[in-house]
Design a protein around this nucleic acid. Sequence first.
DNA 1: ATGGAGGGCTGACGCAGCGTCAGGGTCAAG
DNA 2: CTTGACCCTGACGCTGCGTCAGCCCTCCAT
Lengths: 294, 294
Amino acid sequence: MLLFVHGFGGAIETGSDSYVAYRVSPTRPGPVWWGQDRGMLTIGQLAAYAGVTVRTVRHYHQIGLLPEPERDASGYRRYGPTAAVSLIKIRTLANAGVPLSRISQLLEADSATFAEAIRGIDGHLREEIERLQTSRRQIAQLAAGDGLTLPPEVTAYLDRLREIGVSERVMAGERDGWILVAAHWPDHIREFMPGKLAQLDDPRVVRLYRVLSEILDGGDDDDPRLGEAADIIANLAEQAYAAGTFEPSDGDYQDLMHDLLDALAVEADPRMQRLQELLRERGWTGWNRMERLA
Amino acid sequence: MLLFVHGFGGAIETGSDSYVAYRVSPTRPGPVWWGQDRGMLTIGQLAAYAGVTVRTVRHYHQIGLLPEPERDASGYRRYGPTAAVSLIKIRTLANAGVPLSRISQLLEADSATFAEAIRGIDGHLREEIERLQTSRRQIAQLAAGDGLTLPPEVTAYLDRLREIGVSERVMAGERDGWILVAAHWPDHIREFMPGKLAQLDDPRVVRLYRVLSEILDGGDDDDPRLGEAADIIANLAEQAYAAGTFEPSDGDYQDLMHDLLDALAVEADPRMQRLQELLRERGWTGWNRMERLA
DNA sequence: ATGGAGGGCTGACGCAGCGTCAGGGTCAAG
DNA sequence: CTTGACCCTGACGCTGCGTCAGCCCTCCAT
């Protein structure tokens, strides 16, 4: 019932508000007017007018979102202008991320209900944006960091290890291990790392890493340096135990992680199993879930 | 191969970087340790460790993203620690929005390829965020405006109409009409509206809208005021024509829109067809696609 | 009159990433 | 011996269409 869309002249000025246009596709259907009734569209014309595909329109018919129009003599769907209006309304909501299943209710809701629903949808959108922004931060770390997402404290630790001369194989194992730890202690790990980093100032620890690197890189199955490694570990443990700074395991869940870490090492190189035996001989259960044997 | 996760004491300080943790679910599976091999997990334990569902792990097996592990005596899948590491890596990428089909390639890519891929993914994320933010702006307008997304210039026009005293039925028709126009001229419409708004200062136009409101709200099929309406329209057209400000139609595509608008009016109320005939008698084709008859 | 291009029609499968039964078997504990 | 919490496979469901396949209809050029 629009009156006077036709201009009749009149001043033309330019506004500048923040209107985000609903944009129809720029495709112009070929023969625009091959029906005879004016104002009756074929499905292709309707779709082009609203900027969607023909398949989309048929889909909306299927799910009952847009009512099936009458057919012409040859069985073609013929659409009136109200169908175009409905379709544009539908697309406006759909483009805003409203699920199709809710659109029909929304369109017939009173303005209070409508506003309420809009608020909900907006909240949903905000969450979604949050999520994606978090993802962006994550993958920024992926690009920068030492392989996959690890907190900066951990990558600092890994960098120190590399400086010390730890072999690539051992480095790879360390990375995997820290991934398991980081997944389990996303919060605690950051407080935990400074202590770990400080350990690398101890020459015994440095020696230990180097010895292990050499063994795993080239040693034979019964390398005597395995004994040296076991000695160092036991030594460190004894000292911590005497100083009272030895921290006992605190629960099944951490035991699970420690078991995983031990198993990771063994899986990476079976000689680590031998190291475990040697530690056992010296009175300790392992190097992750470490306990004094009776 | 992680060494000395166990603390041995050591200073604990607090860092404060912007590390976004990969977070595992806080669900602790009931009986943690009912297999016997240490470091071997059931599918449920693995899933809980990585913060995903059991179905997700099985899905990854199905599509070959995570290799099937060996089975134990009763046919249960048993996972080693490397499976946990792989799963965590996979989820880190998947959470960042990487399609599963690309993850396996990504994980075995060298760091240059990896970094390149990461850039692509980041760009994709940025686009997605853009899109959602645009959606938010759109639905903000839905909540505020006169029904569905219309540019502010148009809602201003509609507000003026309401002030003038146009009936709700005519208002509804106007809204629908402007939706059709806005969909077709998303850019042009904003420059077009000031002129339309100015028309409402002409008392003849105001009279026209009021007359039509009355007719459609209660008049009978042969209301004499239809003649008055036709007179006003013809009068305005003649004047514009004489002043040289009459704008002829410019192409099939606009004709389509004008036809739709005419049809919309007739569909809303058949009496508009009568108005069209009366206009024809006065030498004009209609009120949207307006042409002088020979 | 005829042929080809470019519509239209229905019906059906495919896509991502799992959720969610259904109909079984297994394990540890009370 | 039962109960409850796991595990197994197989299969359908969901969203919002894209994309055939096989056929019919209309227009325009020849």
